[in-house]
Design a binder for these strands. Structure first.
Length: 112
DNA sequence: ATTATGACCTGGT
DNA sequence: CACCAGGCCATAA
């Protein structure tokens, strides 16, 4: 399996700062496939098959909803991981999501 | 090839 | 942000 979109997603996800979160759409846009935001989620779904550790719990949908919790070992794992990073979860949604949101575009600022 | 489904997004209400 | 309708694209049957 050669490097592809899938790997780029993991690269970005691994760059997400501690205690911050991002969205599938943001990653999709960053990779230039804003129309294929669903594929980002699909890639993360296969993250378990990858050797590297992927903090997929830091990736939520556009409203901060933990839509991917079901794909984890246990649905509580995602919440606990986020809570352990200082992210409050309320009704399966990230509290203060607009503040914790981290856009992949921030990576490009390092090169300015 | 066609239909259905999904860790989604946008836009309108 | 709550709810609804339409759209995008890869995978599975």
């Amino acid at each position: 399996m050669e490097p592809d979109f899938n790997d780029k997603v993991f690269e970005v996800v691994k760059q997400i700062p501690f205690g911050r979160v991002t969205t599938y759409g943001a990653i999709a846009r960053f990779l230039g496939v804003s129309k294929s935001s669903r594929m980002v989620g699909w890639a993360l779904n296969k993250c378990s098959l990858r050797g590297d550790y992927i903090p997929a719990h830091r990736v939520v949908n556009r409203v901060g909803l933990l839509t991917g919790k079901a794909a984890f070992s246990s649905e509580r794992v995602m919440e606990e991981l986020l809570e352990s990073e200082g992210v409050r979860i309320e009704n399966d949604k990230v509290k203060g999501f607009d503040t914790l949101f981290w856009d992949p575009q921030e990576l490009l600022k390092e090169f300015e």
